[in-house]
């Protein structure tokens, strides 16, 4: 299957080296172009968006009425960056008062597959309805498939008002 050169070009019979050159150029150039297109595409799809505004403190509410070691679900609004939008959305936190000014705020999702768990007063445990993960009042896994303790918000208390920052993923086994 050799190419037949035009008589005007080369009178010599077609040589394999010319065909080899064509093949090398075809494969080489197409590989180069495929790389030049697919690498930026992968970077574009896989790299996270550049860092934007860190989440500020959000005032969640008054905690003077909270009983120690009794979790309360507190609802608040916070701004979240959602792609090209900043949306104001309702969020919840399970807030547990430990001592006078020490408060722990858990993220509202089970660490297994993200279902919303709730506090069972009769058993004194957080129970997830999906796959029956159970967490103690300090967030530790008691039983069930959850791989790590409940996630916690960064929290601070000023004049009995609770402020929450970012939600941090907990360490497995912590």
């Amino acid at each position: 299957m050799e190419s037949v050169p035009r008589p005007a070009e080369t009178p010599a019979p077609p040589r394999t080296s010319r065909r080899d050159f064509y093949l090398a150029a075809i494969y080489g150039l197409w590989s180069l172009m495929a790389a030049a297109l697919s690498l930026p595409a992968l970077i574009y799809l896989l790299l996270p968006p550049k860092l934007r505004k860190e989440s500020d403190w959000v005032e969640v509410g008054d905690i003077s009425a909270l009983q120690p070691e009794v979790p309360v679900e507190m609802v608040f609004r916070r701004n979240r960056i959602d792609g090209w939008k900043v949306i104001s959305e309702k969020s919840t936190a399970w807030v547990v008062k430990r001592s006078l000014n020490q408060v722990v705020a858990f993220g509202p999702q089970c660490t297994h597959l993200g279902c919303a768990y709730h506090w069972d007063e009769t058993k004194n445990e957080f129970i997830c309805p999906c796959h029956t993960s159970v967490f103690s009042v300090d967030g530790k896994v008691v039983s069930g498939p959850a791989p790590r303790p409940l996630d916690r918000y960064v929290a601070k208390v000023e004049n009995n008002k609770l402020f929450l920052g970012a939600l941090h993923e907990s360490e497995p086994g912590a």
Binding site: P40, A41, I43, Y44, L47, P49, K50, R52, G83, W84, K85
Partner: peptide, 19 residues
């Protein structure tokens, strides 16, 4: 939204400007 999302592509996403 079209404008905002294109701005997002151009300024927030790596290689967005190239694409």
């Amino acid at each position: 939204d079209a404008y905002n999302s294109l701005r997002y592509i151009l300024t927030e996403l790596t290689a967005g400007r190239l694409i």
